[in-house]
Design a protein around this nucleic acid. Structure first.
Lengths: 229, 229
DNA sequence: GCTAGGGGATTGTGGAACAATCCGACAAGA
DNA sequence: TCTTGTCGGATTGTTCCACAATCCCCTAGC
């Protein structure tokens, strides 16, 4: 059944417009993960609907999407609020991250060339951004690097799961004051990790990854408790 | 801050009414995972809304919830359909399952007593159901057993992720004709796996788990392709 | 200071209407 | 006969409005 139009069919997604609810959700997600909407903010149906010129119904559909991605919380009869991340949430996120990224590392030998290239590309981007002192981009590239590691498993569901985790994690980053000093030490360790992967030292990479995530979690949790307490 | 009402607070969920959309989604999920709504079925907004006596708005919110859980697919301007699982989906599900359950096995030593008890309980239920020849219940208990294994990691997000995967997997089971012979051989291996966990043989348990999931995937994929082709 | 109750604001849900889109049927042409 | 253009019915996408249910804050009363 495979024909000459397979390449076109693969790009089918490009012609499909997104629904209004989807677009609204995308927009809100962007604002939330970039910190322009701070955690705890109440998202009034009426006010937001007017601001975005969409009806309450459409907005509510968008809220459902975001709630499922844990970026907002929906309290019955009270409305939706930008998610406030507790330190316990961050710990939980890192537990899942470890599981997913470990799965990626372990699948190193059976990873496709594209997946391997994605790891290198993300690291290269982080290094380039560091040269410019652009720490926000370094942070983004860091997330992409680790997403690429989990991606080595070659699983669509793992990819989606990681993407959600990273979006959630940005909520935590937004709560941390100085993003500049946050990523610098971890870039070095990403390079170490990438080196171990390049030389195929899976077990060592796994150990390094575990330590990396433990330390990163500790740093963020501490920053969060320092900031609030 | 912890007081004498902690036990009551833990049951808070029981008194909180769910929204209509949530209830509709729960109802539909039940019908889908139990095979009463076969994959591919179109869920007409008008017909379903009338059958459940809820408005189209409410129904659409429920659809968003189910779509995010991958139990239905939403095609723009065409409607929502009960998800049809491809063999590739099953393979993907098992990749993620392996990652999550492995994380549980590895966290064995730091697992809480409740989490450990959940593993034993699920296994006992499967054995009891086997004695009655109730293979449907064996299948359910099997899913709970593996959910409990992933649960050893003690992570809320891993729990939720597994719960979704299991719901998806039921879609595949629905496509397999004889559920009776499907679970029997795997119950034995669950017992083996549980034994390794009881005696703390983490590495062996991990190996056995990996083989188990590989075999289970192969069985289901074959049953699916046999059934359709 | 605490409790009870009232009023205003917001969400939850239903319903109707219209536009946008899809799909099948039918007709015209090569 | 096969392909292509066009039309019309049916369904979804989105908006708007109405009203009940619920929450939250404020005030009165003890």
């Amino acid at each position: 059944m495979t024909g000459v139009f397979d390449a076109l069919a693969a790009d089918r997604g490009r012609i499909e417009r997104a629904s209004a609810a989807q677009r609204v959700a995308d927009l809100l997600r962007e604002h939330i993960t970039e910190g322009r909407l701070s955690p705890g903010t109440r998202l009034s149906e009426e006010a937001l609907g007017e601001a975005l010129t969409v009806s309450r119904n459409t907005l509510r559909e968008a809220f459902r999407l975001l709630a499922d991605q844990r970026l907002v919380v929906h309290e019955l009869n009270r409305g939706v609020f930008v998610r406030v991340l507790e330190p316990a949430d961050v710990a939980d996120i890192y537990t899942l991250r470890l599981a997913l990224e470990t799965a990626g590392v372990r699948a190193l030998r059976s990873a496709t060339p594209e997946r391997l290239a994605a790891v290198r590309t993300a690291l290269a981007r982080a290094e380039a951004a560091e040269a410019f002192g652009d720490w926000v981009t370094v942070g983004t590239a860091d997330l992409h690097f680790h997403q690429a590691i989990a991606g080595l498993a070659g699983s669509r569901r793992i990819d989606e799961c990681m993407a959600r985790l990273m979006a959630e994690l940005r909520l935590a980053f937004a709560a941390v004051p100085s993003a500049s000093g946050l990523h610098e030490p971890f870039l070095r360790r990403n390079q170490t990790l990438a080196g171990l992967l390049e030389s195929g030292e899976i077990d060592d990479a796994e150990v390094e990854l575990t330590r990396y995530l433990d330390d990163a979690r500790a740093v963020i949790v501490r920053a969060m408790t320092d900031g609030t307490a």
